[in-house]
Write a protein that binds this DNA or RNA. Structure first.
Length: 361
RNA sequence: UGGGGUGUCGCCAAGCGGUAAGGCACUGGAUUUUGAUUCCAGCAUUCGUAAGUUCGAAUCUUGCCACCCCAG
């Protein structure tokens, strides 16, 4: 039987390096594919993508696999970044990485991989996939701390065809150990953070390059003016830092938090000390993607995350239409934010997710 | 112009003769493939200013300055 070919998305980090290595060990014909989806230089003028690519080259040479590079900067700009900016303009807080998976990694990247002769594609995501009754199930990773199914909530059933996630059965520490054992140059490289392909940077300054600042008033929940904001899009619900509000006579010693944005009046609402206005139990969600292609009932209980790295919360789902639901949480949730994704789980299975549109109660 | 009050870090604010608490903000770091949150660390040789008393003053005295309130 001919060797199966796997194209691995390689970012230049440990995870994708080890993913490629493991597949090679498993006997696949492995090809590394590096994506460059962002052209800007970082503030210090040094292009991190270049450094990452160097690492990809080193790792591929080490494990002896061919590698290529592709540039989806245009697709990224059109299908991810424009949406990202539009959401901020509308007063929401988008999650570009969720879309990046659906629009770039599991779409353009996959198409290109197939064109290169791939039987499968693989990434260094921490998650698992299982096929049962002809359906792809997206499952949480063994390392619950690193589980990345949250970011894959918009990926469709078809997009999961012929996908491998070799890291899903490992702990992060094991992955690093494997990299060390094989002497990969990325073994001790720091985990990347920040928006995928754009990287860690001063978020405010970054946004300022694209969205004009429109200063306005900051009011407390009693309607008193307590300060001035530099532009609503630079703040998100639940945020504390960057509001620049210190002690105010009679307001006690609490921290200030953003609790609401009025995009029409250009007003930022804040609360001092008291975080109770941030808590809610019911929200509406649209653009619901069911990885198994449909909800299994009109109403059901499951768990949900309202942001990455949040512990799962017990919730009840009420299906409105196929792609819109109402989520009612058993307990109050802090700072549920429009534009973010609510992702549903049932035990190990990631059911999918959608965009939070309204906080109802 | 009389009478009273207040001036301590960007903002609140302790201190009341023994050698500058705390909170918020801010900065840096940790955590983190979104944005946040959280955590840890740093952050006034100086107390409106000038002089005096004292072994020693932000704390007492006096002058000056600024602001606030009441009266005119």
């Amino acid at each position: 039987m001919a060797k199966k070919t796997v194209v691995v998305g390689m970012s230049g980090g440990v995870d994708s390096s080890v993913a490629a290595l493991l597949l090679k060990e498993q006997g696949y014909n492995v090809i590394g594919l590096f994506m460059k989806n962002w052209d800007e230089k970082t503030e210090n003028g040094c292009c991190t993508a270049q450094i990452d690519y160097e690492d990809v080259k080193r790792v591929c040479a080490k494990i002896d696999i061919p590698y290529y590079t592709v540039n989806f900067a245009k697709e990224y700009m059109e299908n991810v970044f424009q949406y990202f900016l539009a959401a901020y303009k509308a007063g929401h807080t988008p999650n570009p990485d969720v879309l990046c998976n659906r629009e770039i990694k599991f779409k353009h990247f996959k198409e290109r991989a197939v064109a290169l002769g791939a039987d499968y594609i693989a990434t260094g995501h921490y998650c698992n996939i299982a096929v049962k009754d002809g359906k792809n199930y997206l499952l949480k990773s063994k390392d619950r701390q690193k589980d990345q199914t949250y970011f894959l909530n918009q990926v469709t059933q078809r997009q999961l065809d012929n996908v491998l996630f070799p890291l899903g059965i490992y702990e992060k520490t094991q992955v690093r150990a494997i990299a060390q054992q094989y002497n990969l140059s990325t073994a001790t490289k720091k985990d990347s953070t920040g928006i995928c392909f754009i990287g860690e940077r001063n978020f405010r300054k970054f946004l300022q390059n694209y969205l004009p600042a429109q200063p306005g008033k900051i009011l407390n929940l009693q309607g008193q003016e307590v300060g001035e904001h530099i532009g609503l899009m630079y703040y998100t619900i639940g945020q504390r830092r960057g509001i620049n509000l210190g002690g105010r006579k009679g307001d006690g010693e609490g921290r200030w938090f953003v609790v609401k944005k009025d995009i029409n009046k250009n007003i930022l609402y804040v609360s001092c000390g008291d975080e109770s206005p941030l808590y809610s139990t019911v929200c509406s969600v649209k653009n619901m993607n069911w990885i198994l292609e449909k909800p299994f009932a009109k109403q059901f209980d499951c768990t949900a995350k309202f942001r990455y790295r949040q512990e799962e919360q017990k919730v009840t789902i009420t299906v409105q239409a196929n792609d819109s639901i109402i989520i009612t949480a058993d307990e109050g949730q802090r700072a549920v934010t429009t534009g973010q994704y609510a992702v549903l789980y049932m035990d190990d299975i990631c059911l999918g997710g959608g965009v939070i549109t309204n906080i109802l109660e």
